[in-house]
Design a protein around this nucleic acid. Structure first.
Lengths: 194, 194, 194, 194
DNA sequence: AATGAATGAGGATTCATTCAT
DNA sequence: GATGAATGAATCCTCATTCAT
């Protein structure tokens, strides 16, 4: 039985606290002290584990992307056929997890970070390419050459709908959000066949 | 010959400097001193005219929305028929003006501000409603009851595409951006007729 | 008929505004702009007339002392005999004019100024010596050699009572204040005779 | 052996430095930096311990009142009989400690603070009530019903004499000050018996 | 591993004062 | 005489980060 070090536990606590605090503040204007306090430790310890604030933010971003990726993979396991798989991808993008206020808020702020911090931009790029390739894989059998454009469109649409929900304070409407994208998907498929 | 007061000139200079600096920094982490210096005056004068930093940011946001609104109205003048008008709206959203790096950057950061500052949220709401009603007016004759959903979709798509371009450092591709949305528009129209 | 320049009018307005603002703020933390605005002019004009802020404060102090001096002289006109004159002096110190909240407040703050600004200390010295000599003149016939000490005591008592009223926000009680000092005066006189 | 935390030491150093600086400046126009430097630490640390400047001033005020209270209690221990106790109270009010230039200066400025800061007014109120009740307790056996008025008078006189000394730059004369009040006390007692 | 102590750097904001008109 | 324009200097306060223990 491997002795679990305290380090990963502390780090995880800090990452979660970071996301929570960003959600609470609605911006990246969050102090290390606030984060550390929420994680139940001193600010000095947070620095001990992450070196600096930016690294902590990046770790939080990585965490969100990791969870999102896992969820997508999980959703695809059960889906049969390209259409079902596409729907699963869309639904996962607006899953309860991803629509938690704090996650939405974190996403928005990662967008901002990506303008300044190269590593943040790289991570966001990974997310976008992964989404694109996921969509593409299942659009190809249905749309052939039209698939790349449809993938680009659906990817952008997902982000746009997500963005709008992020801006609407109050409970976001998951059903409406995924419904909108799913119907756009149908339009594309219908058009592809015509 | 009306004597042009110096106040509006100074204010305009500050608003422009604000947008420029936000663009340069890629974030709202811009000091009043930096803005004032770029506008060719002291930080104290900036405070004299705008009271505080937030008001300056909001003025910049208002300015961008105003220009955007004017551009949309301008584009609609020449367009004949609903389809042409819809295309004009889309094209304007990705106009050269709106795709200036600094404007893109400002938009992104206003999204963040909207999570915290009520007035910013209000302004963003105005933009969204205006875009929606513009789209709706011309979609209605073409799609009837299907118009609201299509408007929601196109609005979100515009924002999503804009967002993606904003994140792609380097020259954004205006043609690709509007092409993507215009094709989605065609899909909707085609589907509507079917 | 002498043509009254506008200068004395402006100066008087500024002096009054200064006293009012000090009273309102309860401290010397009053800006020239606030004073000027209350006096109905620009801050620049206030500087034009007084040179700097300190001079304005000193002018206000002088004004208060002048008015107080005039009131004392006025009160003495009617009083007959040393005892009546002493009572008049005491009563004037707690006159309605001197107990206006703003005047009380100004006094307190002049005490502070006197610690730093030589001219303020000089003015305060003048007030104290004048009060002392007034008291002394009428105490001498009644107490002989005991007069100086009694004068010192009564002077300090007047200041002390005044100070306490100044600290009691809410309407100061003029009757109680002068009553206290008048009784102390009686004690002194009684003791002097014994 | 209790490990003495550094916090109380730092706080005490800051309180002392505050009193010293106020004394040196003769006003509350003292910067946190000046205070911190005199206390041998950074301004940031001062804020760390006291939160803001006002709290630091209030702590200084509390300290002075505490020391004064202790001194009074100490002086009363040895005094036998009401008259001796009253004399002890008066003497303590003009003790060497209370007449250190910086303490005098601090008092004066606390009077000003009391006009604006509720907590300062509260503290000053406590001092006044304590002084009054101390005087009253020993005046009652000597003067009966005349005690309250005498207490009010002596309290005000102490403050007035103290104030006058505060305004006289140069070494204050403790003997003269307490002599004046003690003689007033005798007048009152003499009058009470008559 | 963990933290309180400590600070340098920085930033918004205020204000007395000057000056051109 | 009068003022809006303009600014330099100052101050409070915050915070990421370091370090000794």
């Amino acid at each position: 039985m491997p002795k679990v070090g305290v380090e990963p536990i502390r780090k995880a606590a800090l990452v979660n606290a970071t996301i929570s605090e960003i959600g609470r503040a609605g911006s990246l204007d969050v102090t290390v002290s606030q984060i550390a306090k929420r994680a139940g430790m001193s600010a000095a310890l947070a620095h001990h584990y992450f070196g600096d604030k930016e690294s902590l933010f990046l770790a939080a971003m990585r965490h969100i992307l990791t969870v999102y990726g896992a969820e997508v993979r999980g959703g695809l396991v059960m889906a049969e056929g390209p259409r079902a798989r596409l729907q699963a991808i869309v639904r996962t993008s607006f899953s309860a997890m991803n629509f938690r206020g704090e996650v939405v808020s974190a996403w928005l702020n990662f967008y901002v970070m990506a303008q300044t911090v190269p590593e943040a931009q790289r991570l966001l790029g990974i997310y976008q390419r992964r989404l694109r390739s996921n969509l593409l894989a299942d659009l190809r059998p249905l749309l052939g050459d039209g698939a790349p454009r449809a993938a680009a469109m659906l990817g952008a649409l997902i982000d746009g709908v997500y963005l709008r929900e992020a801006l609407t304070r109050g409970q976001p409407d998951r059903e409406a959000a995924s419904g909108l994208v799913l119907l756009a998907l149908e339009s594309e498929l219908a058009r592809g066949k015509a």
